[in-house]
Design a binder for these strands. Structure first.
Length: 561
RNA sequence: GCCCCGCUAGCUCAGUGGAUAGAGCAUCUGCCUUCUAAGCAGAGGGUCGGGGGUUCGAAUCCCUCGCGGGGCGCCA
């Protein structure tokens, strides 16, 4: 079993064998989706395909007959699985011998099991977490950070060349308003309209007053700019510290101001103007995607409702102008083949416009993927009496720890609103699913130490064919499923599939362990060194895979609990 | 008014058009002298929001209605 094949996964290999068998029946052209997937019932084996039903019309034959012919002729490499027809379905059962080889492979292969070259080195930028650095991150921002980070980890694991970026809005309206707020606080003035208030603003003002001694000699405008830069820099440091606590790192903190220094928004505007995508109205410069709609009289007219201001009537550019330059920066200047952005749901309305802008700039819209995640709400509880209480990410990490925060966030599909039950999260107990998985890992580490204590001179080679108990083979079976979990998570950019897999594997591990509680001969560590060695091999393979999966989630795998 | 997301067990949620819809928590019943009981084994619990449609087959795709959340050109 070569590494690439292991990375490809058994499902894909059965799928290829299935396609070949179907060709053998004389099916030509593009094959329909044969619905090869995990069988729901044990009686149906491990995988099932509805190939017979899918091909009935085309082959003008009854589904059971087609399934029979497929099952009879299919050749699955390495004898990895057996095929059996059942009605119009073809069921596949993984062979014990193949599972044994897999255990050996994974146990020796280490923690890279499931890695692949799916991405073929494609360069991808993942931009996530980029909130205005005008305040601390709250629990909603944390979701985007964790999501973006795990997507990056997944893509990295599957052969993509990843760059993680935080886009720092250091000169937009909000940044200026923020700087003005801090300046006002320093000088005992009221904050500007829509300005920022809060303890952290007061703190920043005090620090700025201490550190920026010379600003009194400057003109107000210059002094404000200096305060703004100072305050933004401090907030960025604070955000860096917060995300670091979540085990998140970035490759680049890219300032919006750099775009203007490099002349990219200016270039984009020039380009779009020449192409006729820009127009003046009400004293402002607008971007109008070339969309047309019916006016009800059969005439196609330009719709103005999707237009967006690029340069305000007062001559100042909007964030949208920066974003035009940002597109050029990434797709043209820096040459990323794909860009993935992670946004919260309150920005969804901007998706179509940014994509329209990309297309107008000659960038294929498919290269820009925007993942929208829903919000994080605080569940009403005793902890949050004050309505709309602003809960900082740091507060949450203080209370439940980075592992629990990451696990809980990743457990939900991005499409689901998280109702964060603060009370539940505060109960540091077995209700946290993260402990279940971490405990399984720690257990495997512990049992290995126990085994080496009892049998100080275990053989290097393990005879894994001794693993014949159902609960032992079930662990091996779960290992076989791992590569397809990685593949699906990557292809769909849905990391939430990983914690569900981790739970399944952990369950198999706990069962495997507990078989020895009922009957002592089923313990991992027994008198027979050969049997002990075989079970140890299985434990090792499971431990590596658990560790790998937890790593992709950014959750630690403790060796002792 | 328009756009996006959700509605699946008491609660929180998985589920890529396939066979009898799953998990955790909660509830109930068993299991610790012996490798970690933060665990294991078992039970009960469902008109998959309502109604149409497509299909051999729909929780899944389409239409429509309802409820909840988010958003809707000079904030981002």
């Amino acid at each position: 079993m070569r590494t690439e094949e292991a990375g490809m996964g058994i499902r894909s290999r059965i799928g290829e064998a299935l396609a070949q068998a179907v060709r053998g029946l004389g099916v030509e052209g593009e094959l329909p989706d044969l619905e090869l997937g995990r069988a729901k019932e044990a009686a149906h084996g491990d995988y099932a395909s509805s190939a017979g039903l899918k091909l009935a019309r085309q082959l003008r034959q009854a589904p059971p007959q087609i399934a029979e012919r497929i099952a009879r002729t299919i050749v699955i490499p390495d004898g990895a699985a057996t095929a059996e027809a059942a009605g119009g379905y073809v069921n596949f059962r993984l062979a014990d011998e193949w599972l044994h080889r897999l255990v050996t492979e994974v146990a020796s292969h280490g923690e890279g099991f499931g890695a692949s070259n799916l991405g073929r080195g494609e360069s991808v930028q993942v931009e996530f977490g980029s909130i205005n650095p005008t305040g601390p991150m709250h629990i909603g921002h944390g979701r985007g950070v964790v999501l973006g980070d795990s997507i990056s980890r997944l893509l990295d694991f599957t052969g993509h060349k990843i760059q993680r970026e935080y886009y720092v809005n250091d000169q937009n309206t909000q940044a200026r308003r923020f700087g003005a707020s801090v300046w006002a606080r320093m000088n005992g003035e009221e904050p500007p309209e829509g300005g920022y208030v809060g303890e952290y603003v007061t703190e920043l003002a005090e620090i700025a007053k201490r550190e920026l001694g010379d600003i009194d000699s400057l003109q107000r405008e210059q002094a404000e700019a200096k305060v703004r830069q100072f305050a933004i820099a401090l907030m960025v440091e604070r955000i860096k510290a917060s995300v670091a606590r979540l085990n998140v790192r970035y490759d680049e903190w890219f300032p919006e101001s750099r775009l203007w220094l490099d002349g990219l928004p200016q270039l984009a505007i020039k380009q779009l103007r020449e192409e006729g995508f820009l127009k003046e109205r009400e004293g402002a410069l607008w971007f109008g995607p070339a969309l047309e709609e019916e006016d009800g009289l059969g005439e196609h007219v330009r719709s103005e409702k999707d237009d967006r201001v690029v340069i305000r009537s007062n001559g100042e550019p909007t964030y949208f102008a920066s974003d035009l330059g940002y597109l050029l920066s990434r797709f043209e200047r820096r040459g990323f083949h794909r860009v993935i952005e992670v946004w919260a749901a309150d920005h969804h309305g901007y998706v179509a416009r940014l994509k329209a802008a990309a297309v107008a700039l000659g960038i294929d819209a498919e290269r820009l993927e925007i993942i929208i995640h829903q919000m994080v709400n605080l569940k009403e509880g005793k902890m949050s009496k004050r309505a709309g209480r602003f809960v900082e990410l740091d507060e949450l990490i203080d209370k439940v720890g980075s592992d629990a925060v990451r696990y809980f966030y990743l457990l939900r599909s991005p499409d689901t609103t998280i109702e964060f039950d603060l009370e539940l999260a505060l109960t540091q107990s077995n209700e946290n699913p993260v402990f279940y998985a971490q405990y399984a890992h720690a257990r495997l580490v512990n049992v290995e130490a126990t085994a080496l204590e009892k049998h100080p001179s275990l053989r290097k080679e393990a005879d894994v064919s001794l693993l014949m108990q159902p609960w032992e083979l079930e662990v091996a079976r779960q290992l076989a499923f791992w590569p397809e979990v990685v593949e699906d998570s990557t292809r769909l950019l849905e990391p939430h599939r990983i914690p569900y897999y981790v739970h399944d594997l952990s369950t198999a591990v706990h069962r495997f362990y507990h078989a020895g509680n009922e009957t002592s001969e089923f313990r991992v560590v027994v008198d027979d060194p050969k049997l002990t060695r075989a079970r140890l091999e299985l434990g090792r393979a499971a431990r590596h895979t658990l560790k790998t999966a937890l790593d992709l989630m950014g959750v630690t795998a403790p060796e002792r609990m």
